[in-house]
Computed example of a mutant assay.
Amino acid sequence: MDSLKKTPLYDTHLKYGAKMIEFAGFSMPVQYESILKEHEAVRKNAGLFDVSHMGEIIIEGKDSEKFINYMVTNDITKISAYQAMYSPMCYSNGTTVDDLLVYKFSNEKYMLVVNASNIDKDYNWIIENKSGYNIDVKNISNEISELALQGPKSQEILEKMTEYNLDNMKYYHFDKINLDGVDCLISRSGYTGEDGFEIFLKNDYAQSMWEKVLAVGEEFGIKPAGLGARDTLRFEAGLPLYGNELSEDITPFEAGLGFFVKLEKDFIGRDALFKQKQEELKRKIVGFEMIDNGIPRHGYDVYAQGEKIGYVTTGYQSPSLKKNIGMALIKSQFAINGNEINIIIRNKPYKAFVTSKNFYKKNYKK
């Protein structure tokens, strides 16, 4: 673990009794009290996550909008200043470099928030493709900490720390906000299916901000939460995880993210994705629910009618639904709701049926 990168909150996690694991080259808390209790806290009250391992890349210059719009599949010309947009970023063959958030300050300044495992890869991909564009690119990932306050009581907690009227902040919008005397960038966004906020601040203030949010949130039932709950929460809400539902081998269409692919504009991978849409998808990500009493896990094989048709991308015993459920990438002809499939668990087939990926109804503030 000594060779792993650490966020500025590493010592704080140890103080709170976190169980630490390797994730994306970082030593990160997977849980404190328990994944189940942290998951329930976010669904009912609030949870605080350290997501400082995520990457931040600033793109500035007069060609910023034009360049980013060419790099990502979504159309960032549709957002206003201080609005954010989700988008995949693809290779020329249509598979996925990463999925990220584009934060717009102006037509000439943006911040890309990228997955921790892809920071260097994304940065290098951007640099490789910036020729001919009047832009400056800066990777500030090592300078910025990020906290995610998630759950139905998140706003009440933050309101005790700022004079800013959070009622005015819509989903996927952000602003520069003074939070308990610290200048932060706060967005109404998250990765749990609940209302919540993501707080970007300088590393020096991360530890004191963590302690302050937990202290203020104590009366609201807040808990520190680790990567374990983060994964069960995002999975229930049908949100993809890069390396599971998206990868260098999986296109946004296969992942069910066609809504974020705007074929009417030009971008890297557009021709390949246009061709894939014109033809029938050979495989796609589906949800499934177990019939037999087994827990599916990432990587387990999926069979139907005696043949291997794909593999499990994510699988859990859902804390909210009390069911064994999962997502899988399977051949399209079997991707029909209600279809029976078999998940191979310890070399034995366990019955399941195909269902929607949206296991849990999202509770965002629109």
Rank of each mutant, 00 (worst) to 15 (best):
F197A: 14
Y242W: 08
E198Y: 09
E236R: 02
Q207K: 15
G226K: 05
P224N: 07
I222A: 04
G217P: 12
T232L: 07
I222Q: 02
E236F: 00
M209Y: 05
E236M: 01
N203V: 06
A225T: 14
G217V: 13
L201G: 02
S208T: 14
K202F: 15
E219C: 10
E218R: 12
N244Y: 03
N244C: 07
F197R: 11
E211P: 05
G238R: 00
G221F: 09
S208K: 15
D204C: 08
N244G: 00
Q207V: 11
R234I: 04
Q207A: 12
L246I: 06
E219A: 11
N244E: 04
R234Q: 05
S208R: 15
A206D: 11
V216D: 10
E236T: 02
G221V: 12
N203C: 11
N244Q: 01
L214M: 11
K212Q: 13
W210Y: 14
M209C: 06
E245F: 00
G193S: 12
Y242K: 00
E194R: 09
L239I: 12
K212C: 11
G228D: 07
V216T: 15
G238M: 05
E211M: 14
G238I: 00
V213D: 03
P240L: 00
F200T: 07
Y242C: 00
A225D: 06
F200L: 15
G193Q: 12
T232D: 08
P224A: 11
E211C: 05
R230W: 06
K202D: 15
K223Q: 14
Y205Q: 07
G238E: 00
G238W: 01
E236L: 03
V216M: 14
L214W: 09
L239P: 00
L246A: 04
L227W: 05
F220G: 07
D195Q: 12
E194A: 06
A206H: 08
L201Y: 06
A225K: 08
L239D: 01
A225N: 04
A215C: 08
G196W: 11
L227C: 04
E198D: 15
A237K: 04
L246D: 01
W210N: 09
A225W: 04
F235C: 03
L201N: 04
L246G: 05
E245S: 03
L227D: 04
F200A: 08
R230N: 07
L233R: 03
V216P: 06
E218P: 09
G243S: 05
E211I: 09
L241M: 02
E194S: 08
Y205I: 02
T232P: 06
P240Y: 00
A225L: 09
E219M: 09
S208P: 04
G228K: 01
